[in-house]
Every structure is written in C-alpha cells, then in structure tokens.
Design a protein around this nucleic acid. Sequence first.
DNA 1: CGGCATCCCGTCCGATACTG
DNA 2: CAGTATCGGACGGGATGCCG
Lengths: 120, 120
Amino acid sequence: MGGRVGISVTLEVVCGKWKGLILWKLLKDESMRFNALRRSLDGNISSRILARELKQLMNDGLVERIDHQTVPPHVEYRLSPYGRSTASFLHAMNQWGIKHQEELEAAQPYPDRAGDESTS
Amino acid sequence: MGGRVGISVTLEVVCGKWKGLILWKLLKDESMRFNALRRSLDGNISSRILARELKQLMNDGLVERIDHQTVPPHVEYRLSPYGRSTASFLHAMNQWGIKHQEELEAAQPYPDRAGDESTS
DNA sequence: CGGCATCCCGTCCGATACTG
DNA sequence: CAGTATCGGACGGGATGCCG
C-alpha cells in the first residue's frame, strides 16, 4: 500500500499542537519543572493539556518524570535517552520550518485580507 | 518565549493524519492522479479529505496541480520544487519512525488493549 | 474521473475551578 | 507547585450521495 511507513509512527508521536514544541524545549534545556515548562511554551498551554501531553510522551518512553518527593512538590521532566533521539528529525523540522516561513513571506508579503482596506 | 519556532510551522504543514503520508508518497512517485493517490494511501482516505489536504498543501505551495483539461478529467498532482525540500525532514521522520516501532515492540511485545471490550 | 455537499461523530484543545 | 475535574467549542476525519 505505502501507508504503513515510519512517517505515520512519527506523526502519531509528534502530532498535535504541542508535542513537538515540548520535545524541542526539553531537548535544549536539560530538565524543566512543570510550570516552568508551561510558561516557556508560548505561555498559553493549559496545565490540563500539558499534563496530558507529558503523560503521552512518557507513555511513548520519550520523557522521564522525576519527582523529588518534597513539599511543596518539585517535579522535573526530562527527555529519556531515547527521547533525545528525536533530535534527528526535530532539527530537520525546525530548519525547514524557518525556511518555509521565509518562503511564505517572500511569496505573500501581505497576507490576503480580502476586503480589509482599512483606509484610515 | 520559545514557542515561536520552526517546529511549529512545520507541524502546521505536516500535521494531521494524512499530510505527511501524501507528501511522502508524492516524494517517491513523480506525479499521481487523484484516485491513484487515494488508493495508494492505505486505501481508506475519503475523497473529501484527500481533496482538502491537497488543497491545503497547494496553498502552502508544496503541491502543484496539473489539469489536463480532458474529458473525462485527468488531473495530476506533484510536488513543487519547494515541496521536494520537505524530503529533508520527511526522511528523518521516516527513519525515526521505523526505529521507534522496533523500540515499542522490544518494550511491549503485547500492546495493552485495556478497556477494549468490543462486546460488539 | 475528480471533485463538492451534507451529515455526523470523536478527538483536540482551551477556560475555569478545585485539590493535595 | 503540580496536577485533576468538568464543561464546551472547534476541528479533523469518515460515510454517503450527487454533479460536471
């Protein structure tokens, strides 16, 4: 068929709005605490979503959770050795994304605002 | 912030269940007709979805549409030169996906089907 | 053949509130 | 601080049917 390829697997792991960003962030900073990570991600991911994404990432064996067992809680998240292997395609995606953005700007200096004259 | 990075852009372009697969397919076969492409994708993508994905891909300048203007219709889709540049990260994703699958099998020989009663 | 229209459902994601 | 509970909206994706 051609459908059952590695791409699909990777997509399942990285897809969605946040997973890629989380991995990317964790790839650069050794480990991060829950709320620190949360604030670093554009600042507008809800704790509910972050918790879920993290859980899924842990399920896939990419992220490790270190609970310092203190009060107040101090939990850190970091990439597992295997999680670090995502760097291979994450870097490629990042590079391409940067170039793609330039491409877009070059092709459409003014994103079409059909009808939006704003004469003022 | 750290959120506005290339990754996000790439994710927006490739994310979803099909986009990556479509690009991947088009990357290997020079050009394909609508239904041929459709059948090659695991066989179960609806024409509605394929049409939409293709449209979005064209919007992003990655895919070109060649209409032979014949009756019955003969339309072909192919990657634009820029679309071919996605190979950079697509290959990386594919490689990783293949390895990740092995990793999963090694770790969990029997994927848990918890809650899957399917009483039918 | 290559689509578009309609209906529908499940998931993704976010806001808000609350707990240990 | 590090989550969980609940609600609701938006969107992705599929089934079916029809049209040029």
